[in-house]
Amino acid sequence: MPESKPRKRPARQAQQTSAAQNTPNPVWYKAVMFGLMIVGLIWIITFYISEGLFPVRDWGSWNIVAGFGIAIVGFLMTTRWRS
């Protein structure tokens, strides 16, 4: 049985796709990414050191979830980081 030929992309579309993948992120991207990871860590550390009084007393143990949520956003940004 003969094999089918693979489809070829038009040349213009292939160039646009590869150019978009190779462009580096803006300068602020790395600062925001690491900043979110550090802020999330500081949030959790502050909660434990202050024994639940800070950062937001009314949230109680939900402060841990907030700290991890902030840090996870920073970690998710690493999947899109291009240098």
Rank of each mutant, 00 (worst) to 15 (best):
M1D: 02
M1F: 07
P2K: 04
P2F: 02
P2Y: 02
E3P: 13
E3Y: 07
E3H: 12
S4T: 13
S4P: 05
S4Q: 03
S4C: 02
K5S: 11
P6Y: 06
P6S: 07
P6N: 08
R7M: 03
R7V: 03
R7N: 02
R7L: 05
K8C: 01
P10D: 11
P10R: 08
P10H: 07
A11Q: 11
R12G: 03
R12V: 06
Q13K: 14
Q13F: 14
A14H: 13
Q15P: 00
Q16V: 08
Q16D: 08
T17R: 12
T17F: 10
S18G: 01
S18N: 05
S18I: 12
S18R: 13
A19T: 09
A19H: 07
A20N: 14
Q21I: 09
Q21H: 07
Q21P: 00
N22P: 08
T23P: 03
P24F: 13
P26F: 05
P26E: 10
V27R: 13
V27D: 13
W28H: 10
W28L: 11
Y29N: 01
K30C: 01
K30H: 08
K30L: 05
A31D: 06
A31H: 07
V32Q: 01
V32W: 00
F34G: 09
F34V: 15
M37A: 04
M37H: 06
I38W: 03
V39H: 00
V39C: 05
G40F: 00
G40W: 01
L41A: 12
L41T: 10
L41R: 04
I42E: 02
I42K: 00
W43E: 02
I44H: 05
I44Q: 09
T46W: 14
Y48Q: 08
Y48D: 04
S50R: 15
E51H: 14
E51N: 13
E51D: 13
E51W: 10
G52K: 05
L53R: 14
L53H: 10
F54Q: 09
F54D: 07
P55G: 02
V56A: 03
V56G: 02
V56D: 00
R57N: 10
R57F: 09
D58H: 05
S61D: 14
S61L: 13
S61N: 15
S61F: 12
W62L: 12
W62M: 12
N63Q: 03
N63S: 04
I64V: 15
I64F: 07
V65M: 07
V65H: 04
V65D: 04
V65I: 09
A66L: 12
F68S: 12
F68Q: 07
G69M: 00
A71V: 00
I72C: 12
V73H: 01
V73I: 13
G74L: 13
G74V: 13
G74D: 00
G74R: 10
G74S: 12
M77G: 15
T78S: 13
T79C: 15
T79L: 15
W81A: 04
S83H: 09
